[in-house]
Design a protein around this nucleic acid. Structure first.
Lengths: 231, 231
DNA sequence: GATTAAAGCGAGCGCCCGCTCGTTTTTTCA
DNA sequence: TGAAAAAACGAGCGGGCGCTCGCTTTAATC
């Protein structure tokens, strides 16, 4: 896997596909029976929520804003969630779920090449957050105001990806490919550079940096930092 | 300058000193005449605001929360600001002002040593954000909900520190000390590692990482990444 | 210790919030 | 085609919001 386009053909992360998953997960509480209707409306709701929340914050977005922008009535909204917090948790849960799915299964053939595995991790993370940009901005920026279980979910997800980086680094050190004094610290330094892609995407865009370009530059920067030696 | 303690003796960033500066800046609108009283109450207001806003978001913090936690009445609060947004801008303005002051004046003797200047920038930024931790968390997390001029202020401040890093890198490249393919990109990658110290301080603390330790490790990581050659 | 200015107080105003629920509209299917 | 089921509607509810202002308390001055 090497380009954003390839990544996006491999994984269906369209709004419809993502909302179909949300519907599955919350079938018990969503009152609308016909899946086609439910998915379409969930898509409208989530799309609008991400737009408004990322513009002025989830808490500052009122449900009246949401009805106006989404075209659904107040009553219709409450057929999909039973409180504003539940709406938040639907979105967050989907983000965490996708991260788990996409990152936890690196392709075969990378098991014996820590440098390639690290490259795959960085690139895949960037392509994932690029594809689901507003979702990740939402999860990152609203984390502070999540209910307790949402906080735990988000922190757990963050720790998981960080430790995947750490494992790749440790493997590289063991095989003599990397020179890293403190593996956990290095992983902790790499993570915010990954996150910066979506947190400050407007800035990077303004500078003409594409996801592929950012990936290349980040990988070069990290490989120099961890002292990569040719195999 | 090499340790956090040294930094803190050099710069008075106590709550009182910072609020005295806020008072100066907003003397025109603050209705309380006696400086001693005004500074003391501003300190209570700002301290409480940072605590509540960093816990659950500035917008979710009500002024009634603020009266309860600060011990001041509603009327007393409005002797210091004329709207909740003004309170926000007071804090933000002080953060931006201090960054300007502290970072814009590197000590003499670093002019001809880009590696030392880069080290000084990284260390000083970390020590500054460590000393004013809640202020920086506030400015970073609430940025999205700033009024337009606040956003511009924050973005400008961020760009300034980033370009100071970029200038040091470019100087190093020109003098043959660094090997960096794209100076602006490298600076853009370094900035989020600086910010991670205060954004995720709880995590680093849990791992026993002190500011001095983080500074050492970050500097080592960055110097490897930019290919530092001995002078 | 009286006078006056400074500081502090907090109930109350109008507004908008999240959410409910009786009603209407649309869809389904014998 | 008409009755039942599903979906959508939106005015209205209690309550908390930012903010004001007439009043009380504290401090300074002679």
């Amino acid at each position: 896997m090497s380009s954003l386009q390839e990544f996006q053909t491999r994984h269906d992360l369209s709004m419809e596909a993502l909302c179909a998953r949300i519907l599955e997960r919350h079938a018990a509480t969503i009152r609308v029976k016909k899946p086609a209707v439910a998915v379409a409306n969930l898509a409208r709701i989530v799309e609008t929520t991400l737009m408004l929340a990322n513009r002025k914050g989830f808490h500052s977005m009122s449900l009246r804003d949401l009805t106006e922008q989404s075209g659904l009535s107040m009553g219709a909204l409450y057929a999909y969630f039973d409180s504003k917090d539940t709406l938040l948790m639907m979105i967050l849960g989907q983000v965490v779920g996708v991260v788990e799915e996409v990152l936890a299964h690196p392709p075969d053939g990378l098991a014996n090449d820590p440098a390639a595995r690290l490259r795959w991790l960085l690139r895949t993370h960037l392509f994932l957050t690029e594809t689901m940009h507003p979702w990740f901005v939402f999860a990152y920026m609203e984390a502070k105001s999540f209910p307790q279980d949402g906080r735990d979910l988000a922190v757990g997800s963050e720790m998981m990806t960080e430790s995947m980086i750490a494992v790749a680094l440790a493997d590289g050190v063991a095989r003599g490919r990397f020179a890293v004094p403190d593996v956990m610290m290095a992983a902790a330094l790499i993570k915010p550079m990954l996150q910066d892609w979506y947190v400050k995407r407007a800035k990077h865009r303004r500078r003409g940096i594409t996801p592929d370009l950012y990936a290349d530059q980040l990988i070069a920067f990290v490989e120099a930092a961890v002292g990569l030696k040719r195999a």
